[in-house]
Structure formats: structure tokens, C-alpha cells
Design a protein around this nucleic acid. Structure first.
Length: 581
RNA sequence: GCGCUGAUGGUCUAGUGGCUAUGACUGGGGCCUUCCAAGCCCUAAACCCGGGUUCAAAUCCCGGUUGGCGCACCA
């Protein structure tokens, strides 16, 4: 059994992750979160919220998981979130049709299916595997389709990312933030991709949880006001250049920006924030790197893009977060499709005086002359050059109709006007997290097997332990009466209640031997156990046991809820929580 | 989607056509037990689904579902 198998076996057995729909034979690409998995996930999400929503101030929103067609036409998912496939009619192998012709034309990925068919036909391209004849190219779109409303209804799609919900609310968000850049919004929710063949458990799902932030910045101001926070943090960077050499480089965030490895401070700050988050949920620092997209892999509109990658035992480096500067691509796309300006008015620090050619039609005379068409004529006049306006008879064409305007009802001049600001389309910095993958990685990195001495003459045995960081552990403290006796069970339950009231995640367990119960809790990563014994009845003290070291201290029941709380949240060490035994 | 390969209690697993489907661990109840999966008693729990071949199918065949691996795919 490799580590992946061990982790998945444990996850299944102890209620972290279950294959969905098992009762009916299951369905590939879907996983259920059991009681512990769900709690673990919520705790990871909660840390994410703390960093992005509370600390950064990027408020969380919630938008539908079903989207209408226009949204995904604009985003490019209807046309582009699909691949042209082409199957061999002999051996039935499927290939990317555009890859088959990419040696022949330069922009193979821009071709229509008909053009692809024609090129394959003309160049006599056969199956790369068996040389057989290839069938027609067809689109396989990765979005789930659905209908909105009864009957044929309206075409809907399950969203393939949460991001669009933030983009299309740009105007509302801008107003909420009182039109001041930079601002951001976040969303944690489900996204859907109809993967051709989902694999690797929770690594590639058809329904998965994303946590995304869309941060709108000024296109020309990409310094970060709080850059110093992470400036001296060292990152494992696998830049475009480093990938050529095949060696990860370590450097500080500041150096990365100064040496133009990372495009700008704003992106660098968010790479560092991602690094901070991942380590905080328990990803091992030496199994974490940031890989830069190479020029040919990066979306054409992006300035720079980095993936956080985590080293796993079976799958190697897997991508868990993408952090990109997407420029104004998304807002412009929605502006174009919706016919609505998605811009923000930025006031200059001081108004600028700008030389402008200004045309002033005399509406008092234009009105009576052209009646209802006066406004359109005036607008057309404003577009004319000085040359045209200087003629005796000025002609304009409005909707195919020619109008002749006397020169005396219009004046024009080169004027200096005061401009107080400009409209700009903000650039988007997007950190996009795959929560399910991160959750799996926290489990794998927490997973440990340790040899411990066994009773009597027995050989050493394995202790399975999930060394979760306290903050993410789905059970924070176990309450264990030493023996199954009423006189111990009662005070134990009272302590459990006290801890729950303090807001701790408590598990109470009195079944079978104490050692067995310690092991059960090690296996699900419970950081602390409290054991109630006969001394408790004498002197009102209990033992607190540490999961990782198995060390115990003796502490008073009085104020135990505060001690455990402080232990869990790192404000107290075990040594200071009681007397060592 | 294609190819290879697997699918048996909660988990891991034995079982190459023939008794009531093997075992371990785990779980539950109890006895015992004053700190790291101890012992004893009791108990629950499985042949992925659908067809076919056969007197008889967990076992052979076909199809599907699903896990793993390889190819392809992975905004």
C-alpha cells in the first residue's frame, strides 16, 4: 500500500471521504465528505475566510451555481471550454483534432471543426496510432448543460468556475466599495466540469469546491500597499527560467519582484499569501512550490500566472492554486457581450488641463430646423473635423439620410478643458484555490506511521497518526474516562459539556480500553485527550495527553476549558498547561 | 473516450463450477481492568449490477457500473 492508498483507506474508514452514490454502484468524479471530512473542510475554508475576507477585506458573495448562456458565451466557456476531438474509425482512439494539424498551420487552436476536417482530409492525416482513417472532428464541452424552466426552456450551464459570478457583479461591487480601487470579492462554492475521465480520487472531480478571489486593481498601479508584510518571506519558486534548468530556486518575495521573476508586487503579495495559507493548514513547506506558467501555456491575455503545487507521494507535484494577473480580459469580455460599460471613474489627484477640439451646435436653431432628428444631427456634427466644419455648407449623414447644415448655427474652437479623471477598466488579480485537493494534501502531509513499543514481549507496532495542525483538526479534544464506570463517566461528561460550551470540538469516548481510545483519536488527528481517573475524584485533576509526543500533564478541572482552548490555538504550551507526569 | 487490470462484511483478505462463503482487524454489548490497539464471553456485518452458459456460478462468458495503471484529456 502506498501512502495514497493508506490515506484514502483511513479517510473512508473513519468518515472523511466517501465515494458518492455507493449504494447505487457509485459515479466517477464525485465524493461525499463524511462527518470528519466535512468538518476538516469547513475549518480549512474558515482559515481561508479569515485571511481573505477578514484580513484582506475582500467580502464574500454567493452567486448561483447554474448560469445562463450569455455569461459563458462572454467568458469563452461555451466556445472555448471544449476541445475538438477526433476519433480513429479503425482503432477508436481519440485525439485532439487541433493537435493533429498544428504542424501544418500556426493557429490550429483557432480553427473551426469544418476547417480541421478539411485540413485533415487535404493533408491526408491518418491515425497516429494505427494509420487508420479519422472520423469527423467534434466538440467535447466540459460544461454540464441543463435547462432553465419547463419545456425546452432556456439553456443553462453549471458553472465551471465561481469567478464569473464576481465579474458580472462588477458594477454592484464597485458601488459597494465606493468606487475605490483596489477592491475584491471572494466566493467559496461548488463548480462543475464534466471531465472526460476523472481519476485520482478527490484530485480530479466533476463537482468540486473552489475558493476564489477576484481583486480589481488599477492597471498602472500594481504595487501593494502592504508589501512589507511578506517582503522577506522566502518562497520556493519554479520560474519559467528555473524550469529550463529543472531546479527550484529559493528567494524572498522582494528579490523575486526586484529581479522581475514575478511580474509585480501585487501578484507577489498574493503568491506569498497563498504560501502562508497553505502552510497554515498544514502543508509541508518543503513540499510546496510555485510554478510559473510558461509563455505557451499561459492564457494569451494573462500577464503572469503562478500555480501553487504540492508534492504528493503518488501523483508527484499537483496544482492546487492558480494565481494570475488576468488583466482586463474578463471585464472587457462581459462589457462587450452585455453592451454595458464595466469601467470605473478614477479621479486624478489634480484635475488636468487638456487641449480639446470642441464643437458646439446651437440647439436653439438646430431644433426648429431638424425637429426630432436634431439630436442625431448634433451628435454627427460633433464627430466632424475642423476642415469639414469650416466649409460653407456642412453635410452630415445620419442613418443614410443626408442633412445640410448652415455654417452659422455651429461654432467650434480649440479649447483647454479641465478633466478631473478618467474611466479605466480595472485589471483582475485572481487567486483560485481547489479546496478538495488541498484537503487531500493536508491529510497526506499529516499522515504518519510511527513505531511504538508494544506491551510485554511483543514486537514493536505501528501507530497511525494524523498530525493535523490544531487549527484544522476536526476533533480538537477527546474526553476519555479511564474505566467504564459510572463514577468516572459522570464527571467526564460534565467536562465534555464544559468544553463544548467553550466552543471546542469535543469527542467523548468510553468504549473499550484506554490505549485503544488513544489510538483511535491519534488516527483522526485529535491533538489532545483528557483522561478522567480516580485521582480526579480525589483532587479534581485530569491528565492532558498530547497526540504527537504522547506526553501527559496533570491539570486541574478548574479552568480546563480555557487551558484546552489556549493549547489548541497555540497560546499555551503543554508544559505550561499542567504538571508533567 | 480507448487499452490493460481488479471489484467478497466497516477495512484488508481466502476462496479456479458443488455443504451453512475463510480469516484477521475494526464496530456493538458484557466481564475484567488505575493510562497507550491486553485478555475472556457474546454479537452484528459481504460475493458491484444486469443478462447468459450450466443440474449447479462468488468462480466461466457478455454488457454495464466502479477502483487502479497506461494513452488521450486536464479553462
Amino acid at each position: 500500500m502506498d501512502k495514497y492508498e493508506q490515506v484514502i483507506e483511513l479517510a473512508k474508514r473513519r468518515g472523511f471521504l466517501w465515494n458518492s452514490f455507493e449504494l447505487y454502484g457509485g459515479a466517477a468524479g464525485f465524493y461525499d465528505y463524511g462527518p470528519l471530512g466535512c468538518t476538516l473542510k469547513r475549518r480549512i475554508e474558515q482559515i481561508w475566510r479569515e485571511l481573505y475576507v477578514i484580513h484582506e477585506g475582500f467580502m464574500e458573495i454567493e452567486t448561483p451555481t447554474v448560469g445562463i448562456e450569455d455569461v459563458f458565451v462572454a467568458s469563452g466557456h461555451v466556445g472555448g471550454f471544449s476541445d475538438p476531438l477526433c476519433e480513429c474509425q479503425e482503432c477508436e482512439e481519440a485525439f485532439r483534432a487541433d493537435h493533429l494539424v498544428d504542424k501544418i498551420v500556426e493557429v490550429a487552436d483557432a480553427l473551426s471543426n469544418e476547417e480541421l476536417d478539411r485540413l485533415i482530409e487535404e493533408n491526408d492525416i491518418g491515425c497516429p496510432e494505427c494509420g487508420g482513417k479519422l472520423g469527423k472532428a467534434y466538440e467535447f464541452n466540459l460544461m454540464f448543460k441543463t435547462n432553465i424552466g419547463p419545456g425546452t426552456g432556456r439553456q443553462g450551464y453549471m458553472r465551471p468556475e465561481t469567478a464569473q459570478g464576481m465579474f458580472i457583479n462588477f458594477q454592484r461591487l464597485s458601488r459597494y466599495y465606493r468606487d475605490k480601487l483596489p477592491f475584491g470579492a471572494t466566493q467559496i462554492g461548488k463548480s462543475y466540469r464534466n471531465e472526460i475521465s476523472p481519476r485520482q480520487g478527490v484530485i480530479r472531480l466533476r463537482e468540486f469546491t473552489q475558493a476564489e478571489a477576484e481583486i480589481f486593481t488599477h492597471p498602472k498601479e500594481k504595487g501593494h500597499p502592504n508589501f512589507e508584510r511578506f517582503a522577506e518571506v522566502t518562497l520556493n519558486l519554479y520560474s519559467d527560467e528555473a524550469q529550463e534548468k529543472g531546479a527550484i530556486e529559493q528567494m524572498t518575495v522582494k528579490e523575486a519582484v526586484e529581479n522581475n521573476i514575478i511580474a509585480h508586487e501585487f501578484l507577489a503579495y498574493h503568491i506569498a499569501l497563498t504560501d502562508h495559507f497553505l502552510q497554515r493548514v498544514g502543508i509541508a513547506a518543503d513540499k510546496l512550490r510555485f510554478r510559473q506558467h510558461q509563455k505557451d501555456e499561459m492564457a494569451h491575455y494573462a500577464i503572469d500566472c503562478w500555480d501553487a503545487e504540492i508534492l504528493t507521494d503518488r501523483f508527484g507535484w499537483i496544482e492546487v492554486v492558480g494565481i494570475a494577473d488576468r488583466t482586463d480580459f474578463d471585464l472587457k469580455a462581459h462589457a462587450k457581450t452585455s453592451g454595458t460599460e464595466l469601467e470605473i471613474h478614477i479621479e486624478y489627484h489634480e484635475p488636468k488641463m487638456v487641449e480639446q477640439f470642441v464643437v458646439k451646435p446651437d440647439m436653439g436653431k438646430l431644433g426648429p430646423l431638424f425637429k426630432g432628428k436634431a439630436k442625431a444631427v448634433a451628435d454627427a456634427l460633433k464627430e466632424l473635423s475642423e476642415d469639414e466644419l469650416s466649409k460653407d455648407e456642412i453635410k452630415v449623414i445620419v442613418n443614410g439620410e443626408e442633412f445640410t447644415v448652415p455654417s452659422d448655427i455651429i461654432s467650434y474652437a480649440q479649447e483647454t478643458v479641465k478633466v478631473s479623471g478618467e474611466k479605466i477598466v480595472p485589471h483582475v488579480i485572481e487567486p483560485s484555490y481547489g479546496i478538495d485537493r488541498i484537503l487531500y494534501c493536508t491529510m497526506e502531509h499529516a499522515f504518519d506511521e510511527e513505531k511504538v513499543e508494544a506491551e510485554g514481549d511483543e514486537e514493536e507496532e505501528e501507530r497511525m497518526v494524523l498530525r493535523f495542525r490544531n487549527e484544522v483538526a476536526p476533533v480538537q479534544v477527546a474526553i476519555l474516562p479511564l474505566l467504564t464506570r459510572d463514577e468516572l463517566i459522570e464527571p467526564a461528561k460534565a467536562i465534555a459539556q464544559k468544553l463544548r460550551e467553550r466552543g471546542l470540538l469535543v469527542a467523548y469516548d468510553d468504549s473499550r480500553a484506554i490505549g485503544r481510545r488513544y489510538r483511535r483519536n491519534d488516527e483522526i488527528g485529535t491533538p489532545y485527550s483528557i483522561t478522567i481517573d480516580y485521582d480526579t475524584l480525589e483532587d479534581n485533576s485530569v491528565t492532558i495527553r498530547d497526540r504527537d509526543t504522547m506526553k501527559q500533564v496533570r491539570a486541574s478541572v478548574e479552568g480546563i476549558e480555557d487551558s484546552i482552548y489556549d493549547l489548541v490555538y497555540g497560546k499555551l504550551s503543554l508544559e505550561n498547561a499542567g504538571v508533567s507526569i
